[in-house]
Structures are given as structure tokens and as C-alpha cells.
């Protein structure tokens, strides 16, 4: 079933980045290391997008998650008081969380295994679809309302964060 080709090899490398990074995030006790593992994981996802021939999503993934959100997370860690190198476990509910997420993960894996090979591509990926995307953003038939709501959402997010951070 497994074929050894450049694409499959790069898929496995990227999957390793994603899963390994994700595991690193939850297992390390050092918050900054967790942030760095998160970057690795998100980069792996960007690589998977490239393999899915969605370069726009891949670039956005790197730009927004690696370039902005991970930096924001690191800064958040640093402006938070003394969170570096916590030794004891604060959260006593972690076994329950582990069971729930384990069950969810098992369910997802079962779902994927059940569907494996059953999905067939419907149509070819259009080569230059960014222009179509841009057009869809600003037409009634497309996503005009979500597009404008997104800008209001960004505005609200910024106002909220400024209010909260200046209040403290």
C-alpha cells in the first residue's frame, strides 16, 4: 500500500514534524520550549498544505502562525510572571483530560482508517485560484458578508485586547 516516492517521503517528514512537535508541546515543562515545538508543528502543517497543492494556505500558515502567533505566544510567556521552569504539576485533572483526548484521538483515527481509500478526488485543483478567491471575497454570491464581518472581528479583537491589557 505504501509507495516510496519523494512525495510520500516528504509527507512522512512533515507528519513527523507535526506530530512530534505536538507531542513536544504537551510534554515539555519549559514554556518557551513548548512554544518552539509549536512552531515546528505548525511548520509541518504548512508543509502538508504544500503537499496538498494549496500553496496559498501554506504560506499563510507560516506567515500567520510562525511569523505572528508563535511570537505572540512567546511574548505572552515572557510578560507573564515567573512561569519559567515550573516543576510541580498544578493541574490535578490531567488524567481525565488525558482519557478524554485519548478517546477523541482514537475516534479520529478510527474514522480516518474507516474512510481510507474510500475518498476519491472530485475535480482537479485549479492552478491559479487566488484570483478566484479574491473575486469570491467581494461578490454577493461569494463571501462578501463573512469578508466584512472578518474585518469587524479583527477590529473587535484589537479593541478588546487593548482594553484588557491597559486595565490590568
Amino acid at each position: 500500500m505504501l509507495t516510496f516516492s519523494p512525495v510520500s517521503v516528504s509527507f512522512f517528514i512533515m507528519a513527523l514534524f507535526t506530530i512530534g512537535g505536538g507531542l513536544g508541546v504537551v510534554t515539555t515543562r519549559n514554556l518557551v520550549h513548548a512554544a518552539l515545538f509549536l512552531v515546528l508543528s505548525l511548520f509541518g502543517i504548512a508543509g502538508l498544505y504544500v503537499l496538498l497543492e494549496a500553496p496559498y494556505l501554506a504560506v499563510i500558515q507560516v506567515l500567520v502562525y510562525v511569523g505572528a502567533i508563535s511570537i505572540l505566544i512567546t511574548i505572552t510567556v515572557m510578560v507573564t510572571r515567573r512561569l519559567m521552569g515550573i516543576e510541580e504539576t498544578y493541574n490535578r485533572q490531567w488524567p481525565i483530560a488525558a482519557i478524554i483526548s485519548g478517546l477523541l484521538g482514537a475516534g479520529l483515527i478510527a474514522l480516518v482508517v474507516a474512510q481510507f481509500g474510500a475518498l476519491t478526488p472530485v475535480a482537479d485543483v485549479p492552478v491559479d485560484n487566488i484570483e478566484q478567491l479574491g473575486r469570491a471575497f467581494v461578490t454577493h454570491q461569494g463571501f462578501l458578508l463573512p469578508f466584512e464581518v472578518a474585518s469587524v472581528l479583527l477590529l473587535a479583537a484589537m479593541i478588546g485586547s487593548i482594553v484588557i491589557s491597559r486595565d490590568v
Binding site: V64, A68, I69, I71, L72, I75, T76, M78, V79, L154, L155, A157, M158, S161, I162, S165
Partner: peptide
């Protein structure tokens, strides 16, 4: 620093 990073994120 956090506020600047947030405005940039937007």
C-alpha cells in the same frame, strides 16, 4: 511588547 505584537497580528 504584547500590545504591539497584537496590533501586528491584526
Amino acid at each position: 511588547y504584547y500590545i504591539f505584537a497584537l496590533v501586528f497580528l491584526v
